[in-house]
Design a protein around this nucleic acid. Structure first.
Lengths: 338, 338
DNA sequence: TTGTAGGCGTTATCAC
DNA sequence: GTGATAACGCCTACAA
């Protein structure tokens, strides 16, 4: 066995300080009864040995690791990097440590579950575009409280915090109509993504409600390149729509660039565009994109409430499904035609 | 003590399977000698109890946690989100687990060191704009191998992997001159950032070498808004430069938007712009920004080599300071004037 | 206020 | 091939 001992132990400190190991332990426990004299001896010895108490034995004794796993599936979308950052900051402030895991797709989630379990994480946050129901079931077997970010699955151990995609998409219809649009397109994200399906669903529903024809639908990615290609395809012919709702901001920005640079169309003069997320680039003067605020901070907030309740002892019940509204931000890409 | 035992232990499995605890342990150790019969009994019992071997006692015995801490200081810059993602993917593939820490500034690094130490991380990756030398010294006290990403500090426990900012900045001068520019500006990042200082240093050095006047320098942030404001200030008057080198792409994009939208100037016709990093937005048709590839993948690669050597037993010596070249990508913002 | 002793869940070593 | 047994570093009764 590898006996490369790098850290001093409390026993080492105790020996050097001429006290018992428990005295060392008590020195580092807030509110324990240690005399000033003992404490001073311990701290001096600890300083000399660069001693730091280890969390590891504590995990064994308490069955709590203080570790929260964040499982993420791609950070090309700035929305998710912001969410990851927010989660990290907030969890750290609450005394948790973050174990970061990356998975390629919903299915490879299963592959990392054993790793999570072997580190005895106290909770899991899944920030994936797609969380497969089978993975959710597999998770439940380990009885680890889990929060699904943006995928509305749930079971006894799994809560979800989502954005009101459906409602926002309905609002997009009303906005486009108020601005004079009469024909519509939707540039879609990947099939199987609940966010994409809800956004399309709400958009189509509201159009039907008001007696308008269904939108043209093209797409399949949440990326800039996808929006670029789809917009070209959708607007090249004579029957191009007046207004396009995009699955997210990256797609919308791709669409804007394609329309302006390739087709020499004016946005919003020829075609109006709206996106979803309100990533930083949506606010850049070059795009000035109308979009819906995907309120990551608020969602992280709600997630932490659930997490705190679920990891309390005894666990308190808490809302298992939270839906946060998405606020419309009207910018230049849906400006009224002069 | 909180006796909320959530996971089955090897002892539980052994009891159910009717074998010894050691037999269970051996079943999960690759290449250990267990009969097929015993293995089957163990696996059946384990399945029934949802048993997963715990890493925690192993850490105590081996003094290795298999944990690598990544310390990050802000992910507003897409370059850093990509780097974080790359690190995570690569470390995971190599069998490590990632502990993610966020710090606000170079100084708050010190506050997280005890946390790292208490989890007995095997190595640390610091991906900060600024790593204070005092923090580096503090780190060394714990004898944890550390890699400093983009900050060229070093000591016995600290290696660095940086980008050739200086050389790239010199190349920017040559490019601008070849395209006909005769007066120059530099929109700066934050003071104290080595990357910013090297980029300015190389830019100024090469201009002097060739007998050109020093650039106008304005700035102070690595963000879009900073670039926007600085470009306005720099180009509003009559003595605006022909070409501006920006501390990074976010700043460059802000500058482009300010010049085009606020000052009605043409880029590159009136002012040429070059950035640094090659973030995705630099390639968007709306910006088409000339820039230098900040090769995150390659840098992660080099980091992992150092890490592997430093955590090997016995530790192998390895290059302590790596500099990766930054390749020029010429796009529209420095296109020759027609 | 202090020290002693037992145990947390593994791995490694040793007889059998 | 198998089962005891001793660590690992800490926390927590309990006794002094």
């Amino acid at each position: 066995m590898n006996r490369l001992k790098k850290y001093a132990s409390s026993t080492d400190v105790a020996r050097l300080a001429g006290v018992s190991q428990s005295a060392v332990s008590r020195t580092y426990k807030p509110g324990a009864s240690v005399s000033e004299e003992t404490r001073a001896k311990v701290l001096a010895a600890a300083q000399q040995l660069d001693y730091r108490p280890s969390m590891i034995p504590r995990i064994m004794l308490t069955h709590r690791s203080n570790l929260v796993a964040i499982v993420i599936g791609g950070m090309y979308n700035p929305f998710y990097s912001v969410v990851l950052e927010q989660f990290t900051i907030r969890l750290q402030a609450a005394g948790w440590q973050v174990l970061l895991l990356h998975v390629d797709s919903g299915h490879s989630f299963d592959a990392v579950i054993p790793r999570l379990a072997s580190y005895r994480v106290d909770a899991i946050v899944s920030a994936l575009a797609v969380l497969a129901p089978e993975s959710a079931a597999e998770l439940a077997r380990f009885r680890i409280p889990t929060i699904s970010f943006n995928t509305p699955v749930k079971n006894e151990w799994l809560s979800s915090v989502c954005c009101d995609n459906w409602g926002a998409a309905r609002t997009a219809v009303d906005l486009f109509l108020a601005r004079g649009a009469r024909s519509f397109g939707y540039i879609a994200g990947p099939a199987g993504s609940p966010a994409n399906e809800e956004r399309l669903g709400g958009f189509r529903e509201r159009l039907r409600e008001l007696g308008h024809p269904d939108p043209i639908v093209i797409g399949g990615h949440f990326r800039y390149e996808g929006g670029y290609a789809s917009a070209l395809q959708m607007c090249r012919g004579p029957d191009r729509p007046d207004a396009i709702f995009c699955a997210n901001d990256l797609v919308a920005i791709g669409a804007i660039d394609a329309l302006r640079k390739e087709l020499r169309l004016d946005v919003p003069g020829d075609v109006m565009i709206a996106g979803f997320d309100d990533i930083p680039a949506a606010g850049y003067a070059g795009y000035d994109l109308t979009t819906f605020v995907h309120d990551g901070k608020r969602m992280v907030d709600e997630s932490l409430k659930i997490l705190a309740a679920a990891t309390a002892s005894p666990p308190e019940p808490h809302e298992a499904r939270i839906v946060v509204p998405a606020i419309l931000i009207e910018r230049g890409t849906t400006a009224p035609r002069p």
